[in-house]
Design a protein around this nucleic acid. Structure first.
Lengths: 221, 221
DNA sequence: GTTTACATACATTCGTGTTTGTATATAATA
DNA sequence: TATTATATACAAACACGAATGTATGTAAAC
């Protein structure tokens, strides 16, 4: 017990790294993923070296190779950890039953996603990596297909919501839910792309919520 | 004269490459750019080697280094040649005066861009490279700023058109031209991204024109 | 005692940039 | 117009660093 406390101090001080418990190994793994995010963001995925990542994580390449097979595997770990949850979350806010009318629900779902991106730095950075700091070829091409699939999925959710809106008679009967859903989806993926590219926030980020609201209002009867 | 004909045959047969005139050098330069497009598309920009490009262009790296300082310079040459003209074109179709009403003009402008992408393979491939096969870091980061600037520019053009539409009383007075313009811009950049990602054309490409039309019809009073 | 969780050292490949060589086009000169 | 000089448009060879993967070493946990 006393010894553990002693070692713990060493660990915290980082003078001598003596990490061995499973718990510690888990932390190391996470540090590597976090480091990869920073490095990917700054240098792009292909220019990022395992040495860069190791240094940033304050370990050696040995540790990196212990936890991951190669750079691609780190990439996927990063993606799974941060990217996918956002999609799930959006899925949820759209599907869950609510006292709001259908249009408001769509609006809230979109705003919620943007809000999440705003406050969650890691998620924002990961998004930025996926959209601007990575080349979709070879082993990354599969990710692309997943993105397309997710898009289909989200669009279907939009469509269902618009059907409800139609049933609630809050949109014009002339518009087809399918077309509205596709339009909203394209609008939102455009917004996300611009949101990410607009690093200093002067063009899109500051007014993202308003853009969403006016997009939705356009539909309201 | 006779000798020239003789040499010409050699050139055409590609048995011995004897190219030296300025004209021939220009062709070689263009071949390198075309080769780069193919290689970038297949392997991504960072994984593309000057050796890959040279081989594809049927020359050696010597020729590549003669015409270009490095890979980045080839990238920019490719971009300038194919990417920028499309933007100019869109700019034009939006600005030029026409007998159509303002909404129709926006619609035609968007459809025209999609149509151009459909028939112009090189343009399509270049777009694909810029959007999915390239990492926007370091020397490529400048390109990103240019994209944002172009977006502002296009959005302004949309806004002017929507003001005309408002003056023509073909849209509801309650909508602000600025908001409509931003919405259209986000819709269209979303569409272009999806259009490019949808390689087999089953999700977006086949119905791109209809998507545009229904986007515009949503605005019509 | 064995496995875990790394650090260290090594071998090898790959891409880049540069240098050198060379045949031909083109300009200069006589 | 014929000859000569120089610049052009590459090909081929070289030198170098950088990144990868693997193999080995090792101390602590279990």
């Amino acid at each position: 017990m006393y010894v553990n406390k002693f070692l713990h101090n060493f660990k915290v001080l980082s003078v001598i790294m003596v990490r061995k418990t499973k718990e510690d190994a888990g932390l190391t793994r996470q540090r590597i993923i976090d480091a990869a995010r920073e490095v990917f963001l700054a240098r792009g995925v292909s220019r990022s070296t395992l040495e860069h990542i190791a240094t940033q994580a304050d370990v050696t390449r040995g540790a990196v190779y212990w936890h991951f097979k190669n750079k691609t595997e780190i990439f996927h770990a990063l993606r799974d950890q941060v990217f996918l949850p956002l999609i799930d979350r959006m899925d949820d806010t759209l599907t869950v039953e609510s006292s709001d009318d259908a249009l408001t629900q769509i609006e809230k779902s979109l705003c919620d996603t943007v809000h999440e991106l705003n406050k969650n730095i890691e998620m924002r950075q990961t998004y930025e990596i996926m959209m601007m700091k990575c080349e979709y070829v070879d082993e990354f091409a599969t990710v692309l297909q997943q993105i397309l699939d997710n898009c289909s999925n989200i669009t279907s959710k939009f469509e269902l919501a618009y059907e409800r809106a139609k049933a609630q008679s809050i949109i014009a009967q002339s518009h087809s839910p399918r077309a509205l859903a596709l339009d909203t989806h394209l609008f939102f993926s455009g917004l996300l792309h611009m949101w990410v590219k607009d690093v200093d926030g002067s063009k899109f980020r500051f007014q993202a919520t308003e853009l969403i609201k006016s997009h939705i209002n356009l539909r309201r009867k």
